[in-house]
Structure formats: C-alpha cells, structure tokens
Measured scan of single mutants.
Amino acid sequence: YKIYPYDSLIVTNSISVKLPKDVDRTRLERHLSPEEFQEVFGMSIEEFDRLALWKRNDLKKKALLF
C-alpha cells in the first residue's frame, strides 16, 4: 500500500470526500506509515490485525478512517 499522511485519509460525513485515487477505500488504515499508525491507533499494525473485526471497525470509525 502507498503511504499517505493521516490528514489526507480521514473521512468526514461530507459527500465530497477527495481521497487519493489509488487508496483502498476499505482499508484506509493500511496507507498510514507505521509511526503514524501507532500514533492514531495506539498500537502496531500487527496488534491491530489480531483484534476482532468489530473492534477494528470501531477503532477505524473513531479515527475517521471508516
């Protein structure tokens, strides 16, 4: 996945969300650098992957990456 800054990946309720063209809309968190991922989620990507799907989705919603 290509890395993008968190600010360019957050999704708000506005209709005209302009995400970069090559971003996987269903896995926005994968486009964060490991350092920024840790900062946003408070855990590593590996720890995040071990969580239940509902928990990952809940965290993504709170981080505006859903």
Rank of each mutant, 00 (worst) to 15 (best):
S16D: 14
R50C: 11
R50T: 13
V17E: 15
E36C: 06
Y4T: 02
P34Y: 10
A63N: 08
I15Y: 06
T12V: 11
H31Y: 11
S14R: 08
K21C: 15
Q38L: 14
R50S: 12
D24T: 04
G42P: 00
N57I: 14
R27A: 11
L32R: 00
A52K: 09
D22W: 05
L53I: 11
I15W: 06
S8H: 10
R30C: 07
E35I: 13
F66I: 08
E39I: 14
F37T: 02
L19G: 06
I10D: 02
A63V: 11
R27F: 08
N57P: 00
P34F: 10
S44E: 11
R56F: 01
F37M: 07
R25N: 07
S8Q: 15
V40A: 05
R50I: 10
L19V: 07
R27G: 05
H31A: 02
M43R: 04
K2A: 13
S44Y: 08
I45A: 08
I10R: 12
K21L: 14
L59E: 04
T12H: 13
F37D: 00
N57H: 09
I3P: 06
S14C: 13
K21W: 12
H31T: 01
V23W: 02
V11L: 13
V11F: 09
E46H: 11
E47N: 09
F48I: 00
S16N: 14
F66C: 12
P34M: 13
R30V: 05
S16M: 09
P5Q: 05
E35F: 11
M43K: 03
R30T: 04
S16C: 15
V11E: 07
D24F: 05
D49H: 07
F37N: 00
Y6T: 01
W54K: 10
L64F: 12
K55R: 12
N13H: 12
D49S: 08
P5D: 05
Y1F: 12
A63R: 06
S33V: 04
G42W: 07
D24N: 07
L19Y: 15
L59I: 05
E39A: 13
Y1N: 08
R25F: 08
P20A: 04
I15T: 15
P20M: 03
D22S: 04
L9A: 00
R30F: 03
T26P: 03
E47V: 10
F37L: 02
K61N: 07
N13R: 07
S16H: 12
K62V: 09
R56A: 06
K60W: 01
S44T: 14
Y6Q: 02
